[in-house]
Amino acid sequence: MAAKAPDRRRNNPPSHGTTPPVFLSSSSGPVKPKQSSRPPDEIRKIFLRTGLISSVTGSSFLEIAPLKLSVSVLGPRPLPRTSSTPFAAQAILTTEVKFAPFASTVRRGYIRDSSERDLGSRLYQALVGAIRRELYPKSRIEVVVTILDSEDEGDDVNTVYIEEGKTTVETKFWDAGRSERALGVVLAGCITAASAALADAGIEMFDMVSGGVATSFVDEVSLKGKDRGDAVSNKLYVRDPAIVPPEGKAPLATCVLGYMAARDEISELWISGKVGTKNGTAEMDELVDEAIAAARSARGVLNEASKERVKFIVDKSGTAPPTEGGTTDVEMSG
């Protein structure tokens, strides 16, 4: 294993190099991952809470089943005073998405990889249109997303199967859209949580953006057959899809979007996979509509979280004085 250049700002792994653990599965028919009993038009329960980090302007924490992420919003604060800083009539938004090293099946490094940069730029697109940036000239707003845990490809990537005495590295439960689906769920979560954090920071927005994701599935058999065009009728749309496809289904396409419900506007749209060619527009519309429906559901959670926070602040300032400000044991006059 070729040793990478050492990171001089961190402790480095042993010079021998290490490999992720590889599992050996000897059973010829490995256990299928369990199916969720959730109806396809229902999204998973979302836990969303804002204002947990006191030292930043706005923050939120989101949990959807295994996905756990924390968002902090820094700013608006002045741009650094360097000669190279251009004049900015509008606030400059930066978004950063970083997986924790222990957030996925394969350990990630600290340097951001391409998928993290991609998620960051998609999140930027989703948010940048919603923020009233012209109200914050010559300043910057930073949105930092830290993903602590996520649902991804699963242990399949580092499992070796023994078949008839020989080992094979072929993955058993692999389907083409799996990583897109995993990233899509992460991105939708990022969008929803980032809006909540921006609202917590008191940054003015046209509307809060919520993220939605939907995947279209077809029967596995019909995908293999020649007459793929006929399969359009029996498509199954799943909102907020889990990583494991429904029994006997194969994924066609995944759609992730950022949606402003009050204005009925889409700020970010990302479709990957196969959308049929014959009546393509209809198929795509259906897929987008499903994703919008998922985003609407997420918006409900977003509203509740914001309301909860406002209520908390009002209660705190209204009745009981804050603990820090309320201490009267020190003579303050002078």
Partner: peptide, 11 residues
């Protein structure tokens, strides 16, 4: 948050 991941170092 502290997470621990084991990896294998083969001699």
């Amino acid at each position: 948050v502290c997470g621990i991941r084991g990896e294998v170092l083969t001699i």
